[in-house]
Design a protein around this nucleic acid. Structure first.
Length: 828
RNA sequence: GCGAGAGUGGCGGAAUUGGUAGACGCGCAGGACUUAGGAUCCUGUGCCGCAAGGCGUGUGGGUUCGAGUCCCACCUUUCGCACCA
């Protein structure tokens, strides 16, 4: 990058340093939480303070939010713009392990570095109310949130599968497994079953889905949440397992209506979205982990089924889900298809997932691609029960399942019924036979918050042999994370905290007997699922959030952040808010009234990353060009919600713009009168910027201001003070330091941010003459200046009279179209 | 595979309800000022053409007086989700 050799225009480093200090001295950015009128809570997603320091991506997001917030302040709101640090988690811990430092040492120094960089960026952040998720006075309340869920029965413990790297001896998050191997060491990952704490978010699936409709959020974000929640309407159907021994040795499917089944025979419950295809269900499949596998497998099949289950249990979760090749084994058992009465074999296969639906399916190979593939591979019968257009009951399958629409065939008395009607009718029919019922299923599963790690808030639970699972009493919070040197996870599959008896041995809070603490810590997503509740109440030691303050400041007016958190963070925050609302602790159940996702900054066609060597260090640019130019340039790259392509070259244009503004204020005169044409353009610019900024169209707002500067200075004219003064206010959200300086140069003593957004006279924007575009045969041939109220005939006459246009109008017009105020099209 | 989005000059990107395509900036060219210019200022800059004019928004069709914008098919690409029954 190249910096200007000798600074021209104004000197950003001097101006910016001066105003940074004044803002501190005058507490300009400190919000009057208690008394401020017309509150506006402008929230940005808090960063993880990495050792690398602030990333341009962070700064892009923060700047975009800051501009919005400063604009709202200029509109007269009392704006609260807090920022903090999301510093717990595997990310920090792994980095600490890598560099051989303790996170308790590393994180504070990272935070200091972040703060240094953030201070230079010109953000209107109220640092008197910041949070650090790793501070005991913060995670005390994270633990309190856990206890509230526990109290409500929304936190429970169960065994669940996790990814385990045998080389790193640690549990891995799904994101840390790449193609079935550990992202750090390349070892094949296994799965382990561990007891883990879960939050019952699935109970809230319908509300989380339904409420989306009334939220003012980016549509892409809402759609991502809908997909994640994954509502699907279908039916649960029950298949009775026949006495396996009675059928031993028979591998053919006997069609018999006789139920030789004992009354207590097990039943397999499946979930299907296609109850209409029940007549085509030719076999059942259970997930390898399904509890009934044990009970129904015949002695002959037991050894191969056990081997299969052992194999899939060993396989890691990710590669199992990504391997497309179908595998499975026959259990030896048969079940009765409730529709046909026929016997169908029960298989076990890993393409059925235990965590979705009931962990069992009815396979309809004729009309499901996966079942078709499986049935083909294992030579299971494939029956057509839906015929599309031009097909009938006997149309063969052309190497693939038929998943399209159509009418039922081979379905007894339901033949010829359209698929959509059959879904309903067949569900009712099966319901009548007590073989099923309509249900809605969600893909969303409960939130596993346990981490067998060190760097997180300890889960506030104590296990007592007498009293069982006992929550730590609220007045004994926080459960402080001990400062231990050996925080590295080991082969045991339990948290490093479990190695410290002096920490986990505690008396039971209820009976006083010897008891032990839970040694897992909680997921970082829990830290961030409630932080926005804390900011306005920072400083209160007695409550997580003050009732009155919260009532005044929440829900968050506008939240801006990355779409990478479109699902988890935003969904968990909504969930926690809903729970606290149901407990009567909050008056609202949706935390973020408006959410906008910002785009990504790319460079040289790729996302910035250290490995690609295309990372931009904000410090270098701020040194060379100043924070104001850097901020404005970042916003000028492209639409804020889409991101942009960072190139060094472009920033000079933005600096030139600010220099020209500077020069115009310095050289402007108060003598004489402003130019009416310039004032007209100014009014249009105030209008445009005032519309673009709240729409986050920062790039076009900046373009409009640049355009105005071109008008203002055209032909090296000396401008009038009234022509330039409002521009200082328009530019203030983007370039706060230089705006503050210019505002003072103009003689104002109060902060530009406490001035009000400039007004404009709308009457300046209407004129009685317009430029009418003239097309002949749809091709633009020129434009004419005419009265606004011109009639079609007059316009036509004027067009003919214009020599440059008239020559194209040969002969009588066939048709004339006048779009009032815009265009005339003459068809010849 | 499914879902959502995007393809416009040399480059980043603008374009109300279908109504002057290319605002603004970078870059480039010419000029002014200058000992000098990689500073500043002015002018020009989609492509072809001396010009008149023609051609132009991923490709091919369509609707319309008029399409970057609407419809159909296709290509490329980005981002999510991914055996979800």
């Amino acid at each position: 990058m190249t910096a200007p050799i000798e600074p021209i225009g104004y000197d950003p480093s001097a101006v910016e340093a001066r105003w940074r200090q004044r803002w501190i001295d005058r507490a300009t950015n400190t919000t009057d939480i208690a008394r401020g009128k017309d509150p506006f809570y402008a929230l940005m997603m808090f960063p993880y303070p990495s050792a690398e320091g602030l990333h341009v991506g962070n700064l892009f997001a923060f700047t975009g939010c800051d501009i919005y917030a400063r604009f709202q302040r200029l509109q007269g709101h009392t704006v609260f713009e807090p920022l903090g640090y999301d510093a717990f988690g595997i990310h920090s811990e792994n980095f600490a392990l890598k560099v051989g430092k303790h996170p308790m040492e590393l994180i504070p120094s990272n935070i200091r570095n972040f703060r240094r960089q953030l201070d230079r960026a010109g953000l209107m952040v109220d640092w008197s109310r910041s949070v650090d998720t790793t501070a005991p006075d913060y995670y005390k309340w994270t633990q309190w949130v856990f206890l509230q869920l526990f109290k409500r029965g929304l936190a429970y413990k169960k065994a669940a599968a996790v990814n385990w790297c045998p080389s790193c001896k640690t549990v891995l998050a799904n994101e840390q497994v790449e193609g079935g191997t550990c992202e750090r060491c390349g070892t094949t990952v296994e799965q382990r079953f561990l007891e883990q704490w879960f939050f019952k978010i699935s109970d809230f699936a319908e509300r989380l889905l339904h409420n989306l409709e009334r939220l003012d959020w980016s549509e892409t974000t809402k759609q991502a949440q809908r997909n994640w929640i994954g509502r699907s309407d279908g039916a649960r159907l029950r298949f009775r397992v026949l006495d396996a021994l009675a059928d031993a040795g028979s591998s053919t499917v006997a069609v018999t209506g006789e139920m030789r089944t004992p009354a207590d025979a097990p039943e397999i419950e499946v979930f299907t979205t296609r109850p209409d295809t029940i007549f085509g269900a030719t076999y059942l499949v259970l997930a390898p982990e399904h509890p009934l596998v044990e009970a129904i497998t015949t002695p002959q099949q037991r050894s191969i089924v056990d081997a299969y289950r052992a194999r899939s249990a060993k396989q890691d979760l990710i590669s199992r889900k990504t391997t497309k090749e179908k595998t499975g084994e026959f259990t030896g058992a048969y079940a009765a298809n409730p529709a046909t009465g026929g016997l169908i074999p029960v298989w076990v296969a890993d393409y059925v997932l235990m965590e979705y639906g009931t962990g069992a399916i009815m396979a309809v190979p004729g009309h499901d691609e996966r079942d078709f593939e499986f049935a083909t591979r294992f030579d299971l019968p494939i029956v057509r029960v839906v015929a599309g257009e031009g097909q009938d009951a006997h149309t063969p399958f052309a190497g693939e399942a038929y998943v399209g629409d159509g009418r039922l065939v081979n379905s007894g008395r339901f033949d010829a019924m359209p698929v959509d009607a059959a879904q309903r009718v067949l569900t009712e029919w099966l319901e009548g036979m007590h073989a099923g019922r309509a249900v809605t299923n969600y893909r969303l599963h409960d939130w596993c918050i346990s981490r067998q790690r060190y760097w997180g808030p300890p889960i506030p639970i104590i296990y007592c042999d007498k009293c069982g699972t006992v929550p730590v009493p609220e007045d004994q919070l926080p459960v402080v994370l001990p400062d231990i040197p050996d925080f590295k996870p080991d082969d045991s599959g339990v948290s490093p905290l479990a190695r410290h008896e002096e920490w986990y041995r505690v008396p039971c809070p209820t009976c006083g007997a010897k008891a032990r603490r839970e040694t897992d810590v909680s997921d970082t997503f829990l830290d961030s699922a409630w932080y926005f509740l804390r900011y306005p109440s920072v400083g209160r030691d007695d409550v997580a959030f003050d009732r009155e303050t919260t009532k005044k400041w929440l829900p968050v007016t506008t939240y801006i952040g990355g779409n990478e958190h479109a699902v988890l963070h935003l969904l968990y925050s909504r969930f926690i808010t809903m729970v606290l609302h149901d407990m009567g602790l909050l008056d609202f159940e949706e935390p973020f009234t408006k959410f906008r996702a910002h785009g990504l900054i790319i460079r040289e066609g790729a996302k910035m990353s250290k490995s690609k060597g295309n990372v931009v260090n904000p410090d270098d640019y701020i040194d060379a060009w100043g924070a104001d130019s850097f901020r404005t340039y970042l916003m000028f790259l492209g639409p804020f919600e889409e991101g942009g392509d960072f190139r060094d070259a472009g920033i000079s244009g933005v600096k030139r713009f600010l220099d020209r503004l500077w020069a115009s204020v310095r050289d402007g005169t108060a003598d004489g009168t402003p130019d009416p044409e310039v004032m007209r353009k100014l009014a249009a610019t105030i209008k445009k910027v005032g519309e673009d900024v709240p729409a986050l169209s920062y790039n076009t707002a900046i373009a409009a201001m640049m355009e105005y500067m071109n008008t203002l200075r055209k032909g090296e004219r000396t401008c009038h003070r009234a022509e330039v003064e409002p521009v200082v206010q328009l530019v203030a959200p983007f370039a706060p330091h230089v705006a503050a300086e210019l505002w003072e140069m103009l003689g104002h003593t109060e902060s530009v941010f406490d001035s009000r957004w400039p007004a404009y006279d709308p009457s300046l924007l209407v004129s009685d003459t317009i430029e009418l575009v003239v097309q002949v045969g749809g091709k633009t041939r020129g434009k004419i200046v005419v009265a606004k109220s011109i009639t079609q005939d007059e316009a036509l006459a004027a067009a003919k009279a214009d020599p440059a246009i008239g020559k194209f109008i040969t002969g009588e017009p066939k048709k004339v179209i006048l779009v009032p105020g815009r265009l005339l099209n003459v068809v010849v």
